[in-house]
Design a binder for these strands. Structure first.
Length: 141
DNA sequence: GCCAACGTTGGC
DNA sequence: GCCAACGTTGGC
């Protein structure tokens, strides 16, 4: 079982909307690498939800509820979707800057391949990210 | 708003 | 099959 990270622009589809709706079909992926990652997802896998562009932080944790199937938003059979459901918001969102400055997270695809929208996260990276999300904010800031 | 990085398209 | 042109993503 692998952990994953998916990106969404909050203006397009936000974590708040995902929470409110209670589930999502992760459609619209039109990149082969991202598509391959979708197809490798298994039911029950944990998925971190990242706000790209605006926010630039990991905001929540979700889970795969349905493994990949053809993207209903296109006739093109090459593209796939999975279904996700929200699990919980992170206590404290993990900003990209914190990920970049964490020595163990430098190789995360989020950092190395900033345009990839669906990526695997190793167990140790996943643990590190969750640890960062538990860290209390500096009261001075 | 800019632009670097990257992916895709199409002419040759 | 190469590569220039173009479009998109997303950090800054």
């Amino acid at each position: 079982m692998t952990a994953w990270l998916v990106k969404s622009e909050p203006g397009t589809y936000s974590w708040q909307r995902f929470l409110k709706e209670g589930s999502a079909t992760w459609d619209g992926v039109r990149n082969y690498q991202a598509r391959n990652n979708l197809s490798a997802m298994e039911k029950g896998d944990q998925v971190l939800f990242y706000h790209s562009n605006v926010g630039q932080e990991v905001v929540g944790l979700a889970r795969v509820t349905k493994e990949s199937y053809p993207d209903p938003t296109t006739e093109d059979p090459r593209w796939l979707v999975v279904d996700l459901k929200p699990v919980r918001s992170l206590e404290s969102p993990v900003p990209l800057s914190a990920i970049k400055s964490h020595p163990h997270l430098k190789d995360l695809a989020l950092v190395r391949h900033s345009r990839l929208s669906v990526m695997p996260v190793s167990p140790s990276e996943f643990k590190a990210l969750l640890n960062l999300s538990r860290k209390k904010r500096d009261p001075a800031q």
